[in-house]
């Protein structure tokens, strides 16, 4: 059933303020979350984050070499941007690895947020949902606010919520594939099954129209990395994604029409002149 709005439309540009996204009690103006990996340079990364308007960026932990100290430079760059960080457990294949990485991330980044990834398959990078659930139970029990990178599976989603998740991050397509929303039926079913749970499409979006589609379908936000970082002009692509997310969200608020199988004239037939 579609809602009818009694008030006038919300002006473009004012949508975020009118309907903030709430993730674990944190209100955010932007529904675009941005990854920080694979950019051509730190300067381009900075430009892309600023252009995107994203308030949350994903980060990770990697080995620090005493010579290069690359992590120290990266961390000061992110801190200067003043954005909220969402540490991930990317590359973890076991529950133990993911849980230990989460502990280390909490200390370094000073946040209980964690984008929990337990990878189950090296070719598709699809989540090991069994390990994910086990790690979620452990971390939620320790006070972490878990952002689980999961599939569109309804039963897994239900279990993750039971384990303490207050939002879900279903994949659109395999990480970095740029294929868009691979399983529309499954994702729509997930949205319908959990109408009040924030759902963020994580992974696999390639172009802004994919992001717009996700928001039109009622997903609350998208997380984009490769599609921006590997664009010929990342900052310009960040702008494009930001606008697509806004457009998709505005469309969702507006209530899209139902598709039909047959044509329906948009110009009234009544009153048409007889000229034959």
């Amino acid at each position: 059933m579609r809602e009818r709005f009694m008030t006038g439309p919300i002006a473009a540009g004012a949508l975020s303020a009118a309907s903030p996204l709430k993730l674990y009690d944190v209100e955010l103006g932007s529904r675009l979350l941005l990854g920080t990996s694979r950019y051509p340079s730190p300067a381009i990364l900075t430009e892309a984050i600023e252009s995107s308007g994203a308030e949350v960026v994903t980060v990770s932990l990697r080995r620090e070499s005493s010579g290069e100290r690359a992590g120290q430079g990266f961390w000061s760059l992110i801190r200067e941007l003043g954005v909220r960080v969402l540490p991930n457990t990317a590359g973890c294949h076991s529950v133990k690895e993911a849980v230990t990485t989460a502990h280390m991330a909490r200390e370094v980044f000073g946040t209980s947020w964690v984008k929990l990834e337990v990878i189950g398959d090296d070719d598709t990078l699809q989540p090991d949902v069994f390990g994910l659930l086990e790690a979620t139970r452990i971390l939620a029990g320790e006070g972490f606010e878990v952002f689980p990178y999961t599939s569109e599976d309804l039963v897994v989603a239900d279990r993750l919520l039971d384990a303490g998740c207050r939002l879900l991050m279903p994949w659109g397509a395999p990480i970095g594939s740029g294929r868009g929303l691979n399983n529309l039926f499954g994702l729509k079913a997930l949205r319908a099954r959990f109408p009040d749970v924030p759902l963020i499409i994580d992974a696999g979006l390639g172009v802004p129209s994919h992001a717009a589609q996700a928001l039109e379908l009622g997903f609350d936000a998208v997380l984009i990395n490769t599609a921006v970082a590997e664009a010929a002009h990342p900052a310009q692509m960040a702008v494009a994604f930001a606008r697509a997310v806004e457009a998709g969200f505005a469309a969702r608020l507006a209530g899209p029409m139902e598709p039909r199988d047959m044509a329906e004239p948009s110009t009234p037939v009544i009153g048409k002149a007889f000229l034959g």
């Binding site: 990854g35 920080t36 990770s60 932990l61 990697r62 990266f74 961390w75 370094v108 990480i175």
Partner: peptide
């Protein structure tokens, strides 16, 4: 020993 620091991530 593993010594980890903030790094780019998706």
């Amino acid at each position: 020993l593993e010594v980890l620091a903030p790094m780019q991530g998706g």
